[in-house]
Amino acid sequence: MSISFDRALGIHAEALELRERRAEVLANNLANADTPGYKARDFDFKAMLGAQVDNQMQMSMTSGKHLPPMDIAQSNGLKYRQPDQISLDGNTVDTQKETAEFTKNVLDFQASFRLLNGKFKALTAVLKGE
């Protein structure tokens, strides 16, 4: 039996990658907090992670003419945030909300990191036979 890293690490590697992407999107929102007409963006983390996991179980294409499935994982999945309050310049960034989301995302990143690190530690322990 061969060791598959994908199977050994579970969902955590994908989760960590998605957390990174979400941090970038939220950082962009915060950088544009004073840009007139800028619309805040975000993506549904759960849906994206689900799509990434589903993507690993792909349908088999038996003919060369078959088109590959186009789903949420291929598209960017970015949506526009619904503002609580409308501003005169058309900007929908709520700095407090975005900062809170960003901080939450950093903590979730650390959680995913710990879980992934635990997997690596377990693998190392097995390899060393301690």
């Binding site: 992407r21 962009n28 840009t35 993506f43 598209s75 960017n76 970015l78």
Partner: peptide, 10 residues
Amino acid sequence: NGQDDASRGV
């Protein structure tokens, strides 16, 4: 590359 097209800063 299947990445997002969000803008890059201000």
